[in-house]
Computed example of a mutant assay.
Amino acid sequence: MIRVLATGTFDILHPGHISFLEQAKALGDELYVIIGRDANISNKPKPIIPENQRLLMIQSLKPVDYAVLGSLTDYFEPLEIIQPDIIVLGFNQQQNEEKLKKDLNDRGFFPKIVRLSEADTGTSEDMYSSRKIIAEILKKRCLKD
């Protein structure tokens, strides 16, 4: 049984997220997803959708077998239970693969790390990005010329 792990914020769920999760699921038998906690998100704006609601959305998706909120104190804590064989990174996720691999190995985890390309996820379309969706909403609904 190959366990695949994907992580993300998943704020404003969109087709790019679905494609990412479908591609991740295709790499193994079970797909586990860790949802970033509101308090821990520091590399981009805080989510609009609260973490518990984001968790419910991800749990409801067909490719996802298990979804959990991340730890508030230790990024690697959920991995102790999940024990992933593969960790999938989206093309635009900020993790440095070499640093992630070293940090995982230092903690006793030795999964394969797979970074999907933009082409793999089919996310070259305009509405496959939360930022692009927000910009389009502002343009069409809020900003008047």
Rank of each mutant, 00 (worst) to 15 (best):
M1G: 13
M1F: 08
I2F: 11
I2N: 08
R3L: 06
T7H: 06
T9Q: 09
F10A: 02
I12D: 07
L13C: 04
L13N: 02
P15Y: 04
P15A: 03
P15S: 06
H17W: 02
H17E: 07
H17Q: 06
I18D: 01
I18K: 01
F20K: 01
E22Q: 15
E22F: 02
A24W: 07
L27D: 06
L27G: 00
D29S: 14
L31M: 12
L31N: 10
L31I: 11
L31H: 10
Y32P: 07
V33N: 06
I34N: 04
I34T: 14
I34H: 07
I34F: 01
I35N: 10
S42C: 09
K44E: 14
P45T: 13
P47C: 12
E51R: 11
N52Q: 15
L55Y: 03
L55C: 13
L56G: 14
Q59A: 11
Q59C: 12
L61P: 10
K62R: 14
V64R: 12
Y66G: 05
A67S: 07
V68N: 08
L69C: 06
L69I: 09
G70E: 09
G70W: 00
F76T: 02
E77F: 06
P78C: 04
L79Q: 01
Q83W: 01
Q83P: 00
Q83F: 03
Q83E: 14
V88L: 10
V88A: 13
L89H: 05
L89E: 05
L89D: 04
G90K: 05
F91I: 01
N92R: 13
Q93M: 10
Q94Y: 06
N96L: 07
E97C: 06
E97W: 09
K99V: 13
L100H: 01
D103H: 00
L104S: 00
D106V: 01
D106N: 15
D106W: 00
D106C: 01
R107Q: 12
P111K: 02
K112R: 14
I113F: 06
V114A: 07
L116T: 03
L116V: 06
S117M: 08
E118L: 14
E118S: 12
E118V: 11
D120V: 00
S124Y: 13
M127G: 08
Y128M: 10
S130C: 08
R131W: 11
R131M: 13
I133R: 01
I133Q: 08
A135M: 13
A135V: 02
I137Y: 08
I137A: 05
K139E: 15
K139G: 09
K140E: 15
C142P: 00
C142F: 15
L143A: 12
K144W: 15
